[in-house]
Design a protein around this nucleic acid. Structure first.
Lengths: 142, 142
DNA sequence: ATGAAAGTGTAGCCGTGGCTACACTTGCTG
DNA sequence: CAGCAAGTGTAGCCACGGCTACACTTTCAT
């Protein structure tokens, strides 16, 4: 596409719309992945730990956890920590794999490790399956 | 970093924080780029056109334009279209270059064109200067 | 066994970015 | 030149994701 070609209106609108909705699931993905990590590493996931890791207040974390529950991704009983449902664990695993893949591709392209980790944190939520597949192929053929 | 190593807390919190703040500028970037395209292509940028391209209501577009004005990126007089300030044009140009670079890298990695355009729409807002530089180098050495 | 510290939960505020509904310009057309 | 269609702007709603402040459990040490 030449520089000053605008894509057809509906195409462009669809793209922006998808990017917007990807954004709305990004937060759930981050929480799911982090909770899975904490469960694996510490045996439990407490709201305060989650909040500290994400750099938000515990109240913010608790509200997000409520949303995870609403979406059927997590369960939690008052004062008893947070757990993931099967759906939540599947999501976390998908996110974990995708995150590593994005970081590995960035590093393979010559991005310094710390920048790769940082950028992957934002990029990962916008990587489609098609792109993910291409990333896999690229890393294999290295 | 081994799979189940968690990054140190402050590091991880900082990463998430940066990813969050990148998000807040993403919308401005999209508007600035689109307005620049419309000005270049049609000679004028009207709120309704902007809204159609982005797939949002005209009211939403107008609110975003108000924010662009607040941030010193755009100017607009009632019923007279939207224009970019110097800062706005510089931003738009930076965004345009970055967008192309991201798309080109994705395509070079084997991502199908349409998916590359779609994913770039979300990814571009999270690409640091270091990553951008690596992308450039990668494309040159192709 | 109790009391303080740590953690948890709730309430209520803010700004953002969506939306619809309604009012008002503008500008073209007949 | 009158009137209507298209475009513009404003108001007010919602959900989200931040926050602080405050209340309530739990837990652990004395």
């Amino acid at each position: 596409m030449a520089p000053s070609d605008l894509p057809a209106e509906p195409t462009q609108a669809r793209r922006f719309g998808k990017a917007r909705s990807a954004q709305s699931t990004a937060l759930l993905e981050d929480y799911a992945e982090l909770i899975a990590d904490l469960l694996a590493g510490e045996g439990e996931a407490r709201p305060t730990d989650i909040a500290r890791r994400l750099g938000v207040s515990h109240a913010t974390a608790i509200k997000a956890i409520a949303r995870l529950k609403r979406e059927g991704l997590a369960t939690a009983r008052p004062y008893r920590g947070v757990f993931l449902t099967d759906a939540g664990m599947r999501l976390a695993e998908r996110v974990r794999v995708r995150h590593r893949l994005v970081v590995d591709v960035l590093v393979a392209l010559g991005v310094p490790a710390e920048a790769a980790e940082q950028d992957a944190e934002g990029i990962e939520h916008h990587v489609s399956d098609a792109t993910l597949a291409a990333f896999s192929r690229f890393l294999e053929h290295l």
